[in-house]
Amino acid sequence: MRKWIIPVAIIGVLVLLAISSYNGLVGVQADAKTAWSKVESSYQRRSDLIGNLVKTVQGAADFEKGTLTAVIEARAKATAVTIDPTNITPEQMAQFQQAQSGLSSSLSRLLVTVEQYPDLKANQNFLELQSQIEGTENRINVERDRFNDSVNIYDKKIKSFPSVIFAKIFGFNEIARFKADAGAEKAPSVEFDFDKK
């Protein structure tokens, strides 16, 4: 009877360790998924605001239609790209970021073009929407940082011993992180030519 106590105790400890590791992995993976949902929610808010912004700008009869069309098309592309939060690969993340960067770029061009339209710049609806979009861009940045923090915790958990063993057994894979766009490390060049009139 005594000879069975040690093997049973070892098996019991291994079972408890497996349960604890599995539950811990599930918890940090769920946190990363929740963080991703918040990122998507922030991007969705921006998309919704851009729709309202476009409608407001369309009210300016002499506004360039090409600029508006570029924003509308970029918004459609950005909302078409979706990611499965249970399996975020670097390729999916790159595709998502490319679509969002295209939207950001066309939105920037729209806001620069608006500078030529004093009536539109003074429109209260436009000013409120512009302010909300700026706030949303800040939210997006905060949520991306929080997502990366959650992924960092998850990655450390699936790569540390003994969780690494159970992560492989139960199929817990790495989650891709947000990375800066290529060239983002360079400061933008801002030039003012006051000689032009």
Rank of each mutant, 00 (worst) to 15 (best):
L103Y: 09
L103F: 02
L103M: 05
S104D: 14
S104A: 10
S104V: 00
S104N: 15
S105R: 13
S106D: 06
L107F: 08
S108L: 07
R109S: 12
L110R: 14
L110K: 09
L111I: 01
L111A: 02
L111H: 01
E115N: 08
E115V: 04
Q116R: 15
Y117H: 03
P118W: 15
D119M: 13
D119Q: 14
L120I: 05
L120W: 08
L120N: 06
K121P: 01
K121H: 10
K121T: 00
N123P: 04
Q124M: 15
Q124E: 14
N125Q: 15
L129T: 03
L129I: 01
Q130V: 00
Q130D: 05
Q130L: 05
S131K: 14
Q132L: 04
I133R: 09
I133H: 05
I133K: 06
E134Y: 09
G135D: 08
T136C: 05
E137A: 02
E137G: 04
N138F: 11
N138H: 06
R139L: 09
R139M: 10
I140F: 09
N141Y: 07
E143I: 00
E143M: 15
E143T: 02
E143Y: 03
R144S: 02
R146N: 10
N148L: 10
N148Y: 06
D149L: 02
D149P: 14
S150H: 08
S150D: 07
S150F: 08
S150I: 10
V151G: 00
V151W: 03
V151N: 03
N152G: 02
I153N: 09
I153H: 11
Y154E: 00
Y154V: 01
Y154P: 04
D155M: 13
D155F: 06
I158L: 12
S160F: 14
S160Y: 12
P162F: 05
S163V: 08
S163W: 10
V164Q: 14
I165L: 12
F166A: 02
A167W: 10
K168E: 06
G171H: 06
F172T: 05
N173P: 06
E174N: 13
I175S: 07
A176Q: 15
F178Y: 05
F178C: 02
K179G: 11
K179Y: 12
K179S: 10
A180K: 13
A180N: 12
D181P: 04
A182F: 04
A182H: 11
